[in-house]
């Protein structure tokens, strides 16, 4: 969001004394932070200046409740989308650490087995296919593919680097963490949101 502030934009004058303090408190509790203030302000303004003069206070309260109930899922989804993006970034940090650990495990010989190679090939192909299927733009999906292939081909190159021992558990965690963000990213930024959002 751009943070520029404009100095004055007059709203229509308040033509009624409509007040809904309980609903307003509930809105503050229910609605997540992005656009909360703007949304509550818009609803109060419309209830006071448009809905109440037309249909009365009682109906305006019902209208406000209806708007709150119908708006909350959209606002929660918006909040989750922003949160997921942030979590993805944190997750990638963990992935990189665990990838390094798994490379060390490879070097120690624990994971230098055909099954490991096969798993990495399947993993890399899976992420590559997911990336290609959903890739309208490069982004997280490209990174997912890059990490998978780096894991596959970089293992031998980086193996002399001394890293903390993680072993098989580390490998399993790496598998989960490498696949999950790729899938999450694909789901998150795949085809755009619903076109009939109302």
């Amino acid at each position: 969001m751009t943070s520029t502030r404009v100095t004055s934009h007059a709203s229509p004058p308040a033509t009624t004394t409509f007040h809904a303090p309980r609903t307003e408190r509930l809105m503050v509790m229910l609605l997540p932070a992005p656009y909360r203030d703007e949304l509550i302000g818009d609803l109060l303004e419309e209830a006071r200046t448009v809905v109440t003069p037309r249909v009365g206070e009682r109906a305006a309260r019902r209208w406000l409740w209806g708007q709150l109930l119908r708006s909350t899922p959209h606002m929660l989804r918006l909040h989750l989308r922003k949160e997921l993006t942030m979590r993805n970034e944190k997750l990638w940090g963990m992935v990189l650490i665990l990838v390094m650990g798994s490379l060390q495990a490879w070097d120690s010989g624990v994971l230098r087995a055909p099954a490991y190679i096969a798993a990495m090939v399947v993993l890399a192909i899976t992420i590559g296919v997911v990336a290609l299927l959903f890739a309208e733009r490069m982004g997280m999906r490209f990174i997912a593919s890059a990490v998978a292939f780096a894991l596959l081909f970089g293992a031998r190159i980086l193996s002399p680097i001394p890293l903390p021992e993680l072993g098989l558990v580390g490998f399993v965690i790496v598998m989960i963490l490498v696949v999950a963000p790729g899938l999450m990213a694909a789901k998150h930024s795949g085809p755009q949101g619903p076109t009939s959002a109302a």
């Binding site: 969001m1 004055s8 308040a14 307003e24 302000g41 818009d42 109060l44 200046t49 119908r70 708006s71």
Partner: peptide
Amino acid sequence: SLGAVYATLDRLEAKGHTTSVAAPGSEARG
């Protein structure tokens, strides 16, 4: 619903299709 409008406006802003500026609230908006 207003929530649907804001969710869409946020998506459009993320794509660079819209920009927004904040303004102070009036009495009618509490």
